[in-house]
Amino acid sequence: MSKSFAAWVVDKATDKSDAANGGGVRELTTDDLPPVDGPSVLIEVECSSLNYKDALACQGHPGVVNRFPHVPGIDCAGRVLESDSASFAPDDPVLVTGYDLGAARWGGYSGLVRVPADWPVSIKDRLSPAQAMAYGTAGFTAAQCVMAVQRCVEPGRGDVLVTGATGGVGVYAVAILAKLGYRVVAVTGKPAQADTLRGLGAAEVVGRDVLEGESDAPLLSERWAAAVDTVGGAPLATLVRSIRHRGVVAACGLVAGAELPLTVYPFILRGVTLAGVDSAKCPREPRLEVWRRLSGPWRVDLPQELVDTVTLDELPDAVARILSGRHVGRTLVRPTSEAALR
């Protein structure tokens, strides 16, 4: 029997000034869900989350969305309604992050989602849907960044810098690194959040100017043992030139730009590692290991002030905040709508 539900549907591309106004809440049924080639799982979504990529998708950004209509949401968590796979049964709690969810395939800003059967990860007896989405792609990415740091640098070798420290990836990177014994220096343009970052474990909080400078020298003074960079661009280039011998930078973002003005000198003279971290296409076995750590030894429960929750009706304001740089921490998205119920 067909079942109806609310979803945020994007019908056209807009510019940044329009926030999420290229779409709106719509009532859909299971008949509207795009089909899946091969075995699939139908999930009743309890919770999704808001990431920068989601904000772009809400505008129909061509770098994320290539066809309309589209439902954003690169994360979701809930319970299985129907399954073609022996790995999942009805009522099993699961999460999905990455792959093509919310990009090439309709995503989590929807009461129901249908995905290939090899996408979900079981969270039974480990995380609630809300806890899973407090992590979402942001926590999943942060954990991969920490793993990249661990491979090259042990705690005690020096300071580990985290840029964009009040963002979703940043807050988890700070907390997990501190939990593992690293001395964390958090970079933020929001000085009012300094106490919050220290509460997460940052030993020091500095402004963005720590990575600003006019020197175009191929190498700068060695300052950081390692770093997690969420911004890219010129700050990342400065960071790489400032990393100590045999240090590492785990890079996962580009809000400061996609260009990287560097020479090879940091790599061939200091043995610096630039470790790119992707999340969408992470293979299944490493993916399961990341979630094992996040739900176990690396578990971090963010303070209440760093997690807020919005409904689909409130999504445009949340998208505007993240696109304007005013967003802090994590925003959960409940795929419910008062408008759709009226």
Rank of each mutant, 00 (worst) to 15 (best):
M147W: 06
Q150P: 03
S85E: 05
V149Y: 03
K124L: 12
G156T: 02
A86E: 14
G102C: 11
V113F: 07
G158D: 07
G158A: 11
R79S: 13
A130D: 08
V162P: 01
P120W: 08
G111E: 07
I123H: 03
D100A: 12
L112P: 01
T141M: 08
G107W: 13
R151V: 00
A142G: 00
Y99M: 11
C145Y: 06
V80Y: 09
D125M: 03
A103I: 13
Y99N: 14
E82T: 13
A104C: 08
T163C: 09
G136R: 02
D100H: 09
V162E: 03
D92A: 15
E82M: 01
V94A: 01
E154Q: 15
P120E: 06
A143I: 02
T163D: 09
A148Q: 01
Q131W: 04
L101H: 04
P120K: 06
G102M: 11
S87D: 15
G164V: 06
A132T: 09
A103S: 15
L95P: 08
G108D: 06
T97P: 04
S85C: 06
F88N: 06
D84K: 15
C152E: 01
D100C: 04
E82G: 07
A103V: 11
V80P: 03
V121A: 04
G108S: 07
P155W: 02
M133R: 05
C152F: 00
D118T: 15
A138N: 10
I123N: 00
A86N: 10
V113A: 15
L161H: 14
S128R: 14
V149F: 01
T97S: 09
A132V: 11
V162N: 02
V96L: 14
P120N: 07
V121M: 12
P116D: 08
R126Q: 02
S110V: 04
F88E: 09
A148T: 00
E154R: 15
A89H: 13
L95R: 06
S83A: 13
D125V: 10
F88W: 05
G107S: 13
